[in-house]
């Protein structure tokens, strides 16, 4: 064999621990960002913004570890799919972290301006997006393709919510133009949650690739076209 399996296993275990640690940080970041927005908590929002560099650093570490494994061990089959899936999931997690920061920035703005009567249930939408993120990471841990598929399906709900939010905010701006800036901040937050759900879907799709070896991305669009 070209490589020593025990040594390789050790490297893979380390990589798994690293991606799960990043996942935990990102989940916590999103949770705190949403809480800061809902509770108008500037201090908490600033903490989220300030701790983003830790997520960024972990993302770089995971990528370097993946590159090292690819270069030194040339994994194939299941091992190759694992490293590639982690490389992609890593990217999605970092982007979700950035979106958490974006939400925290909106929280800072909103908490320093006149309190609005929320035109929509942001908490509900945030819970759905967070549940998708948690589901995608649980699917990764347990290699649960059914759970991963459920996450993919849930994305449609969040997309629909985002569209509703757009209509509600538009209506509120027309009826009460003086709150336009704050309403746009809220609309952005909704958009960030929708993007988070998209990234969680990407993670779920990568889990399906990891387990089944099939790339399911875009398959819905293709079947719709044909």
């Amino acid at each position: 064999m070209a490589r020593h399996p025990v040594h390789f296993e050790r490297e893979i275990e380390k990589l798994k621990r690293m991606i799960l640690s990043l996942g935990e940080d990102v989940e916590a970041c999103v949770k705190r960002a949403v809480r800061a927005l809902v509770r108008r908590d500037t201090t908490l929002a600033m903490k989220v913004i300030d701790s983003d560099f830790e997520i960024d650093q972990k993302e770089v570490d995971v990528e370097e570890e993946c590159l090292k494994i690819l270069a030194l061990h040339q994994p194939v089959a299941n091992d190759l799919r694992l490293v590639i899936a982690i490389l992609k999931i890593n990217n999605d997690l970092e982007r979700i972290g950035d979106l958490g920061v974006n939400i925290a920035e909106r929280a800072v703005y909103l908490s320093t301006h006149e309190k609005l009567d929320m035109p929509f249930d942001l908490q509900d939408m945030a819970e759905k997006a967070q549940a998708m993120l948690k589901g995608s990471l649980d699917a990764l841990i347990n290699l649960d393709t059914q759970l991963a598929r459920n996450v993919c399906k849930a994305d449609d709900e969040v997309d629909a919510m985002n569209r509703e939010v757009y209509a509600l905010v538009e209506e509120r701006i027309l009826s009460n133009p003086k709150h336009i800036n704050s309403l746009i901040q809220l609309l952005s937050a909704s958009r960030y949650l929708e993007r988070m759900a998209d990234h969680a879907t990407n993670i779920a799709e990568d889990v399906i690739y990891l387990v089944e070896g099939e790339i399911i991305r875009h398959t819905n669009q293709q079947s719709e076209k044909s």
Binding site: P5, R17, I141, N142, G213
Partner: peptide, 28 residues
């Protein structure tokens, strides 16, 4: 988030799982 279980080397092929059920994920 659930903590990963670290598997013993050479026991299981699939990524994050520790059990023998990993084999069932392979398609026929």
């Amino acid at each position: 988030m659930a903590k990963i279980k670290v598997k013993a080397p050479s026991q299981s092929l699939n990524a994050f799982s520790t059990s023998s059920e990993t084999g069932k994920t392979l398609p026929p």
